Simulated assay, not measured.
Amino acid sequence: MNPETTIKKQEGFQGQKAIILPRSVLATLIKNNDIVSPLYITDIGYYPKAKHHFRERKHGADQHILIYCIKGNGRVTIHNTSHEIGSGEFVLIPAKTPHVYEADDQDPWTIHWIHFKGSVSNSIIDTFEKQTDSYKGSILASEKIVNLFDEMYHQLERGYSIDNVAYTNMCFWHFMTLFLFNNKFNASAESLEKDPSDLAIDYMSKHIDKALTLEEVARQVNFSTSHFSSLFKKKTGHAPMEYFNHLKIQKACQYLLFTSLRIKEVAQGLGFEDPYYFSRLFTKVMGVSPALYREKRSH
């Protein structure tokens, strides 16, 4: 067939599957359900080897769209910016945003796709865009993602009972975290390059028993203290030494719960020379003194 006369299509691919949730179900079982209304699926589907797949929405969709490619290639254009999408890559398309997507003519993509809404859905899109400066990402956890997708799809195939819809959309939270944090918490991604804040946290965790200084930690990531502090606080929401102290108090809680160490020994084991300072810091972070924390948790 002449490429110029190729008929593009929105669906109709061998082996495809899709579920469009009835909008009446969404209105009654989701919008009024506090558990799932923050984030929920409206449409879900799978298109294998979607040759000639093409879709244009000049005014965007009412929902956000996630397209995850597991084989082949395609292209997604958002706001006149094109993104080439290959195996292991995905794109998040914001609601109400003009877009076009299509499969590659020579090696058409195989995709899992989901349309979603909810009170936190805009924040999810915004968070991803801020992290990547793009709507496109890549991910390693393909088997986990596909298995979770199949689980959600299977449950929706069984109907729209309150339990089925709630279970599916609670699974969807986990599903979205795999994309939103883009391999950060994927065990198989340990060898990937980490950003300075992650490296600093690793260093803090390995030296939890030391009285590290800001200068020492900044030196480990080759930054000045001011630049490192600004970067770290922007990433974590906490100043570096405040974060380090929180890690120490977290470890102190474990010592108090699971060992018979005296409070003075716990303090020394975490690099605090002054046990009274340790007790004041613990009380400030946890809301109770170390002694009271141990006493309350032992009953």
Rank of each mutant, 00 (worst) to 15 (best):
T127E: 07
T127M: 04
F128C: 10
K130G: 03
Q131R: 15
T132W: 00
D133N: 13
D133Q: 08
D133F: 05
D133P: 03
S134Y: 09
K136F: 00
G137D: 01
G137L: 11
S138N: 13
L140E: 03
A141C: 12
A141G: 10
E143W: 00
E143I: 12
E143Y: 04
E143K: 08
I145K: 04
I145L: 12
V146C: 05
V146S: 05
N147C: 09
N147W: 01
N147L: 07
L148W: 00
L148E: 06
D150K: 15
E151W: 07
E151A: 12
M152F: 00
M152D: 00
M152E: 00
H154M: 10
H154Q: 14
H154I: 06
Q155E: 07
Q155T: 14
L156I: 11
G159L: 05
G159Y: 01
G159I: 04
S161T: 13
S161G: 07
S161C: 00
I162S: 09
I162Q: 09
D163H: 04
D163F: 04
N164R: 14
V165W: 02
A166N: 08
Y167P: 03
T168Y: 06
T168N: 10
N169T: 01
M170S: 10
C171E: 00
C171Y: 01
F172T: 12
W173N: 07
H174S: 10
F175T: 07
F175P: 09
M176D: 03
M176E: 04
L178N: 14
L178C: 13
F179N: 11
F181D: 15
F181Y: 15
N182Y: 08
N182K: 15
N182H: 14
N183L: 07
N183K: 08
K184Y: 08
K184C: 09
F185N: 14
N186G: 04
S188G: 11
A189D: 02
E190K: 14
S191E: 09
E193W: 00
D195E: 06
D195I: 10
P196Y: 02
D198M: 14
D198N: 03
D198R: 07
A200I: 01
I201S: 03
I201Y: 01
I201D: 01
M204I: 06
M204W: 00
S205V: 03
S205I: 06
D209P: 05
D209C: 03
K210L: 08
K210H: 12
L212G: 13
L212E: 10
E216L: 01
A218R: 14
R219H: 01
Q220H: 15
F223V: 13
F223P: 10
S224H: 14
S224L: 13
H227F: 11
H227I: 15
F228A: 05
S229I: 13
L231A: 15
K233F: 05
K233C: 08
K233I: 09
T236C: 09
T236F: 04
T236W: 01
G237L: 12
H238V: 13
H238W: 12
P240W: 03
P240S: 07
P240K: 05
M241K: 08
E242C: 03
E242L: 07
E242D: 02
Y243G: 08
Y243D: 06
Y243N: 10
F244H: 02
N245D: 02
N245S: 08
L247N: 12
K248E: 00
K248R: 11
K251S: 12
C253W: 01
C253Q: 02
Q254E: 12
L256A: 12
L256V: 11
